[in-house]
Amino acid sequence: MINHLLIKIKEYDAHGGPQKKVHSKHDYTATPTDSGRFVIHTIEKHISKLRYFWFSAIPWGAGLRNINDVIYVDVNNNNHWVKLTSIVPQWINQKNHYTEKNVADELKRQWYSLNIPPDKSSAIMDNRELPDKWLFSDFGHISVKYFKDFNHDGIMNGKESVMNDFIHTTPDNEAVTSYNLRRTASQRPFPVTLPESHGCIHVKPTDIDIMIGAGYLKKGQGIVVHNYADKVIPATLKPDRYFRGNFEAHFFPGLFKIVIYKLI
């Protein structure tokens, strides 16, 4: 790509993992976001049936019903309703012998905590109606997943696999964004503050939709994660020989920014 340049056209807020590994009292490890050059593999709703199964084994936007304090979900939105506890039995088996009503109450508490701005009266919490869609996934409404392309052919093959780090939103940021979009002119907007991740890249819900919709994040295109020590965002970059597509996303974890470059 002789004489071509990548020019900065957009930048968005983003928050990765901590600069050094951190062990939490809640029995998780937060790690730095892995640096390097990657290729976007899939753009999809993330489901976690292992580490984050409590809320993330059900995909964002699945149908949700509370019938007589029993929670039902329609995972594929095809009118096939099943008990939440049949998909995530840990709610009963690992939550101190929870009953179905305990599960419903726990979801009400979670929904209460996500409501922006919340009414903090206990009566409101006790009687709060759940939404008709699953809005609890730790990974938000969409995720952008990428892989380390060892042989530089742009295809995930051989010993390559999707990284544990990926780009996604959070339920708290989704809730604030939803409120801001539906608020009246007299209601003040709430700031969308990105939390530190366990290693993934957190972005704002509206921003991830813009980046996907504009083709900035697209299957087969590159994403570069810089070192935490990089404290300057270049206005232009020279594309390397592995560049593909029209755009390239660069995440600067030390500056809390994702920057979009366009090939010219």
Results as ranks from 00 to 15, higher is better:
202 H>Q: 15
193 T>M: 13
83 K>Y: 01
165 D>Q: 10
142 I>M: 02
160 E>W: 00
153 D>V: 12
69 D>S: 12
27 D>H: 08
251 F>D: 08
1 M>H: 07
131 P>L: 01
37 R>S: 08
113 S>W: 06
239 P>G: 03
184 T>M: 12
78 N>C: 12
212 I>E: 07
198 H>A: 15
150 F>C: 05
146 Y>S: 02
144 V>K: 03
183 R>K: 08
252 F>R: 02
91 W>N: 00
23 H>K: 12
100 E>M: 09
179 Y>D: 07
10 K>L: 09
133 K>E: 10
216 Y>D: 05
237 L>W: 10
240 D>L: 05
40 I>K: 00
181 L>D: 15
20 K>F: 07
178 S>M: 13
218 K>F: 06
127 N>E: 02
252 F>Q: 01
70 V>F: 10
204 K>E: 10
20 K>C: 03
221 Q>I: 08
163 M>H: 08
55 F>M: 11
256 F>W: 08
52 Y>M: 07
238 K>I: 11
23 H>G: 06
27 D>F: 09
29 T>W: 02
110 Q>F: 10
88 V>E: 01
155 I>E: 10
162 V>M: 09
167 I>Q: 06
140 G>T: 00
107 L>E: 00
86 S>F: 06
17 G>L: 00
30 A>Y: 12
231 K>G: 07
36 G>T: 10
135 L>M: 14
108 K>Y: 11
19 Q>V: 13
68 N>A: 06
42 T>H: 09
221 Q>A: 08
